[in-house]
C-alpha cells in the first residue's frame, strides 16, 4: 500500500474519533457530573440523524436543518430532564438503566411510526460535495474534513466553556461539592438541566453531521451508544479531555483494525479497552 492509503485511513480515524467524541463528551458529563447512566444517549444520536434527514428534506438545506435540529434537541433534552431525569439523581444505577433502556425502546418505536424502517440517505450540501485528489486515483471527500473541523471547533468551545466561563466554574464546583455550591447561591438544579440538555444536543448534533456519510437507519444509535460507553470508560468517567483522547484511540483502533485484521476488526476496540483497563482501571484521565 502506498502512503496515500495510510493518509486516507488516518483522516478517517480522526473523523470517526472526533464524531464519537461529540457523543461521548455529553455522556461523560452527564455520567460524571450528575451520576446518571443514560442509555438513551445513543437515541439522541439517532434522533439527530433522523432530524437531519426529515428537516433537510423539508427545508432543502442541511445547515438550516441542523440549526433547527439543535434547537429541537435542546428543548427535548430540557423536557426529558424536567420530566424524568431530575427524579433519578438520587436513585440507584439499576433504576436509571431501566428507565433509559425503556426510553430507547420508546424512541425506536416512535422512529418506526414517524419515519418508517427504511434506510435513508441525506445529500451532502453541494458546496462540500467534492473530493480533494491525493494521487492519480485516490481522493478524499471534503465533507469528511468538514466534519473533523466542526468537531474540533466544538471541542475547543467546550474546553473554553468549562475552563474559562463562570458557568463552567459552577459546573466544576458543583461536581465536587454540590451543597457548597448551592449555599453560595448557585442554582445547581438549573445548571444540571442545562448540562443535560447540552449533552443530549451534542449527541444529536453528531448524528446530524454524520447522517450524510453514514446514512440514516433503524438502530443506528445503539452501536454508537456502546462505543461511547467504551470511550467514557477508557477516558475516565467525567473527563472531557479523557473522552477526546479515548475517542481518537477508538477511531484509530477501529479504522486500522478493519484495514489490517479485517477478520478481528469487531473486537479490536474491546481488546484496546481491556488492555487499557488492565493498565489503568480508573481510565486514562480519572480525576483524583
Amino acid at each position: 500500500m502506498d502512503a496515500s492509503v495510510y493518509l486516507i485511513q488516518i483522516l478517517n480515524s480522526i473523523q470517526y474519533g472526533l464524531l464519537l467524541f461529540l457523543v461521548a463528551s455529553g455522556l461523560t458529563l452527564i455520567f460524571g457530573i450528575m451520576g446518571i447512566i443514560n442509555l438513551a444517549h445513543g437515541s439522541f444520536y439517532m434522533i439527530g440523524a433522523y432530524m437531519a434527514f426529515s428537516l433537510s428534506a423539508l427545508t432543502g438545506n442541511l445547515f438550516l436543518a441542523i440549526l433547527l435540529g439543535i434547537i429541537l434537541s435542546v428543548i427535548l433534552g430540557i423536557v426529558l430532564e424536567w420530566l424524568l431525569f431530575s427524579r433519578l439523581y438520587r436513585r440507584e444505577h439499576l433504576e436509571q438503566v431501566l428507565l433509559t433502556f425503556g426510553l430507547i425502546l420508546i424512541f425506536e418505536e416512535l422512529r418506526s411510526i414517524i419515519a418508517g424502517d427504511d434506510v435513508h440517505g441525506v445529500p451532502i450540501p453541494a458546496f462540500l460535495n467534492y473530493s480533494i485528489p491525493l494521487t492519480e486515483n485516490q481522493s478524499y471527500p471534503v465533507y469528511r474534513l468538514f466534519i473533523s473541523g466542526v468537531c474540533l471547533l466544538i471541542a475547543g468551545a467546550m474546553y473554553l466553556f468549562i475552563q474559562r466561563t463562570r458557568l463552567g466554574m459552577m459546573i466544576r464546583a458543583g461536581n465536587t461539592n454540590r451543597e457548597m455550591a448551592q449555599s453560595l447561591g448557585v442554582n445547581i438544579n438549573l445548571i444540571y438541566r442545562l448540562v443535560f440538555a447540552l449533552g443530549m444536543a451534542l449527541a444529536a448534533f453528531a448524528g446530524m453531521l454524520a447522517a450524510p456519510v453514514s446514512s440514516v437507519f433503524p438502530g443506528m444509535g445503539n452501536q454508537v451508544l456502546i462505543l461511547s460507553f467504551v470511550v467514557v470508560v477508557i477516558g475516565g468517567i467525567g473527563s472531557v479531555w479523557g473522552a477526546l483522547v479515548a475517542a481518537l484511540l477508538i477511531g484509530f483502533a477501529d479504522t486500522f483494525g478493519k484495514v489490517f485484521v479485517p477478520d478481528y476488526a469487531g473486537i479490536a476496540v474491546y481488546l484496546l479497552m481491556a488492555a487499557i483497563l488492565l493498565w489503568r482501571p480508573e481510565g486514562l484521565f480519572r480525576r483524583a
Binding site: 466544576r172 464546583a173 451543597e179 455550591a181 453560595l184 447561591g185 480525576r287
Partner: peptide, 20 residues
C-alpha cells in the same frame, strides 16, 4: 463558611473567588 471549609479543590484560588 462551613466547618471543614469546603473549598473547591479542582478550581484555582481565583476561580473559587469569582465563581459565585
Amino acid at each position: 463558611v462551613p466547618e471543614g471549609r469546603g473549598i473547591f479543590p479542582n478550581l484555582s484560588v481565583r476561580e473559587n473567588l469569582v465563581m459565585a
